Amino acid sequence: MRLACGLRNDSPADGAWNMALDEALLNLAAEQGVATLRLYQWTPATLSLGYFQSESDRASHEQSTGCPVVRRHSGGGAIVHDRELTYSLAVPPVLVYSRDPYALYFAAHETLRDTLQQDFSPPAGVAVELCQPPPSRPRSEDPFLCFLRRSVGDLLIRSAAAGLPETVDQCHKVGGSSQRKRQGAILQHGSILLQASPRAPELPGIEELIGQEITAGGLAEAWLPRLSSRLSLELHTSECPQTKLEEEAQGILASKFGSDAWTYRR
Rank of each mutant, 00 (worst) to 15 (best):
V80H: 07
E110K: 11
S98M: 02
L116A: 11
D100S: 13
L130W: 05
D100R: 15
L130M: 06
G76Q: 03
L85E: 00
S64A: 13
Q117N: 15
S88H: 10
V94N: 08
S88L: 11
E110H: 08
G75C: 05
R137K: 14
R113G: 01
Y87M: 08
Q63N: 09
P135N: 10
V69Y: 03
R99W: 08
P101W: 07
Q63C: 12
V128T: 09
V70M: 11
P135T: 06
V70D: 08
P101Q: 12
G125S: 03
T115A: 09
F120W: 10
D114M: 14
C67N: 12
V80Q: 02
S64F: 01
L104G: 02
P133A: 00
P93F: 11
P133E: 04
V94Y: 07
Q117L: 15
Y87L: 11
V69M: 02
E110R: 10
Y105G: 10
D114A: 15
G66K: 01
D100Y: 14
S74C: 04
A108P: 00
V94I: 07
Y102D: 14
V94W: 08
A107Q: 04
S136N: 05
E84G: 11
S74F: 00
R137Q: 14
G75L: 01
G125I: 01
P101Y: 10
T86H: 05
V94L: 05
P134W: 06
D114Y: 10
T115W: 08
L104F: 01
G66V: 06
R113F: 01
A127C: 12
H109E: 02
T86S: 14
R71W: 04
H73R: 13
R113T: 00
Q63E: 12
A108I: 06
A124F: 00
P138E: 06
Y102E: 15
V70P: 06
Q63I: 11
S121N: 14
